[in-house]
């Protein structure tokens, strides 16, 4: 059964594109039932609406959001009792804006930190209205991805993993992880659907934290 309360709530800020200013938001440690309800009742219909628009505009399916088949309820059910996995959600204006799950048992691949423990980001997704790549609408809140990667870096530090974070990126997010997050691109991983694998070192993590909000 999914938890109803996050284990920790931290105040953060997201950039509101409509109001052109930063607004108060929260980072929840632990995706809870309310987040899954938001995903089901708000994200899914909005995603379907945008997919319909893409289809009407004859946009090829390979340009549709590659995370469109993700089932967050199933993902959370899979990991709910596993000590190795943790989850985070961003909430703003009473609505879930982004979610992430991580695995703390994976090892680093980058030379210099190879085989050391890291926080591996299994899944990270922003609400459809916060993505600039679906049907041309500007994102409502900016900085969701950055905030969640920051959460992964901070968890890595808390866990004693020195800020090391790794992930396989969907092609549409490659530039975000390389440029915005400053992660090292280790190239395509033949053992993981040819997705590019990115990793962040202690030094890169320090730079990333120093950048603060990257809205």
């Amino acid at each position: 059964m999914t938890a109803t309360q996050p284990s920790e709530i931290r105040a953060i800020e997201l950039y509101d594109n409509a109001g052109k200013d930063f607004v108060e938001a929260q980072r929840w440690h632990g995706v809870v039932d309310k987040n899954l309800a938001d995903w089901e009742a708000e994200w899914m219909p909005e995603l379907q609406r945008r997919l319909k628009l893409l289809n009407q505009q004859n946009v090829e399916r390979r340009f549709w959001p590659q995370s469109r088949h993700w089932d967050w309820r199933a993902k959370l059910k899979d990991i709910e009792k596993r000590l190795a996995n943790q989850s985070f959600a961003l909430v703003c204006n009473g609505m879930t804006q982004a979610m992430m799950t991580v695995d703390t048992t994976k090892r680093a691949r980058l030379e210099g930190q190879q085989t050391q423990h890291l926080v591996y980001v299994d899944y990270l997704e922003a609400a459809p209205w916060n993505r600039g790549d679906i049907a041309g609408d500007p994102p409502r809140y900016r900085g969701c991805g950055t905030e969640l990667i920051l959460a992964a870096v901070e968890l890595s530090i808390t866990e004693g993993f020195k800020g090391r974070v790794g992930l396989h990126s969907l092609p549409q997010a490659n530039r975000f992880y390389a440029n915005r997050c400053g992660m090292t691109d280790l190239g395509q991983d033949k053992t993981y659907e040819n997705l590019r694998y990115f990793e962040i070192t202690l030094e890169q993590a320090q730079v990333f934290i120093g950048k603060g909000k990257g809205a």
Binding site: L83, T104, T105
Partner: peptide, 21 residues
């Protein structure tokens, strides 16, 4: 592994649970 005893034992427990599952 450059880890504290607490962190290392916590990792061991996580892995044990994962393998057992």
């Amino acid at each position: 592994k450059d880890l504290s005893k607490t962190v290392l034992l916590r990792q061991a427990l996580r892995l044990y649970q994962q393998v057992d599952e």
